[in-house]
């Protein structure tokens, strides 16, 4: 549906970064820890101040209220946070179809967050961000704590969403196998610059 454009992004030691993600395109980003990948995602989601202009289709991030931008250009952080006791309280309108795609049943909404495993929380966090129906996703190691089986399920779901709903995905991953499976393009963050992976 829309193109994510990043122009002259500069934050701390990162940048300037210029990047364009086409509708439905999956762009993977790898690089050493501390190279600034997460920082870049946080800047694009407008969670931290940075210079540069970001736009999704015609919409510039600076021309809309920050919550509007963040609901459309949504960041899934590497470590999810939960603040209510039960899972369901964090959801506005749970989507049954998405739940099943991530092998959850409806009863997962009644689970206590404190009893969920790290992997369950990671998949639930993905479910939570997807129920906002974002138009672009910034994914920070979305399968970082998942077993191989669930990793494949998450990859399949995200690929399907990208292609069917034409959502651009900017996907940070450390696994080269995963990047091979999902990426249309692959960049490496090196010395604060994006380098095309050869």
């Amino acid at each position: 549906m829309a193109i994510l454009t990043i122009k002259n992004l500069i934050i701390a030691h990162v940048g300037p970064v210029n990047l364009e993600l086409k509708s439905g395109e999956i762009v993977c980003l790898s690089g050493a820890s501390g190279s600034g990948k997460s920082l870049m995602l946080r800047a694009i989601a407008d969670i931290i101040p940075a210079t540069g202009t970001f736009s999704l289709g015609e919409m510039k991030s600076s021309s809309v209220m920050a919550p509007v931008w963040r609901r459309q250009v949504s960041l899934l952080p590497a470590e999810s946070q939960w603040w209510f006791d039960t899972v369901g309280e964090h959801f506005n309108q749970p989507d049954l179809e998405l739940m099943h795609a991530l092998s959850f049943e409806k009863d997962c909404l009644e689970w206590e967050v404190s009893r969920c495993s790290t992997g369950e929380k990671q998949r639930l966090a993905l479910l939570r961000v997807l129920t906002n129906k974002p138009k672009c996703l910034l994914l920070d190691e979305p399968t970082g704590s998942l077993d191989p089986d669930n990793t494949l399920k998450v990859e399949a779901l995200l690929k399907r969403l990208a292609k069917q709903q034409q959502i651009p995905l900017l996907w940070v991953s450390h696994s080269h196998e995963q990047i091979k499976r999902v990426a249309d393009r692959h960049f490496v963050m090196r010395d604060g610059k994006l380098v095309t992976y050869e």
Partner: peptide, 15 residues
């Protein structure tokens, strides 16, 4: 102490 939670809520589009 709860900065991560606050930021997570902002990421999900809360004001």
């Amino acid at each position: 102490q709860q900065r991560a939670v606050i930021e997570q809520r902002l990421m999900l589009g809360e004001d």
